[in-house]
């Protein structure tokens, strides 16, 4: 029966999306790609998460918060480098323009993760779930991979994130 096949295909598609979600999250016009969390040394209380947040909708998407059960506190931050000096500033909102993207990367915008809640530190290759909260109340779950290195140097065992 054609309708049945259609539903099965849809269900399979949904399942595929769910499975692929580990690398690629899409919820109502916001697509998050290449999410990673910086592995941190023992005893250290802070680290950062980086990703590409794409907005496929016709309206700006405004990121207002991030949460992660592994950390007590989080903040949206921007590193500003000026004349050889670096400082961070907290950012209340991060707007992703309609049909645009914002790249969170080392030395620029990043999501600061503060006060680890677990006794064991994550290692390169581990996965971590983050939730991005947008101004319109939308929550976007993101699966991030833990990496020691900056962009361009894939963590050991990391596979291509572009399965589509």
């Amino acid at each position: 029966m054609k309708i049945f096949h259609g539903s099965a295909a849809l269900a399979a598609g949904a399942l595929a999306l769910l499975l692929a979600g580990s690398a690629f999250s899409e919820t109502g016009g916001v697509v998050v790609d290449k999410a990673w969390v910086r592995a941190y040394p023992p005893g250290i209380q802070v680290t950062a998460a980086y990703m590409v947040v794409k907005n496929t909708s016709d309206q700006p998407a405004v990121l207002v918060g991030i949460s992660c059960s592994d950390f007590a506190k989080t903040e949206i931050h921007e590193t500003v480098q000026h004349q050889g000096q670096a400082h961070m500033q907290a950012v209340k909102e991060l707007a992703i323009p309609a049909h645009g993207e914002v790249v969170l990367k080392p030395g620029g915008h990043h999501l600061m993760l503060i006060a680890p809640q677990k006794d064991t530190r994550p290692h390169a290759g581990d996965r971590m779930t983050l939730t991005l909260t947008f101004k319109d109340g939308k929550n976007v779950p993101v699966q991030a991979v833990v990496r020691k290195d900056a962009e361009g140097k894939p963590a050991a065992g990391e596979h291509s994130q572009h399965a589509h």
């Binding site: 250290i44 209380q45 802070v46 961070m88 990043h110 290195d149």
Partner: peptide, 17 residues
């Protein structure tokens, strides 16, 4: 400083490399 989540680990990671 170690409470620096972005620039310091980036710089020290670079120096390690």
């Amino acid at each position: 400083y170690t409470h620096c989540p972005d620039v310091c680990p980036m710089a020290m990671g670079f120096l390690g490399e």
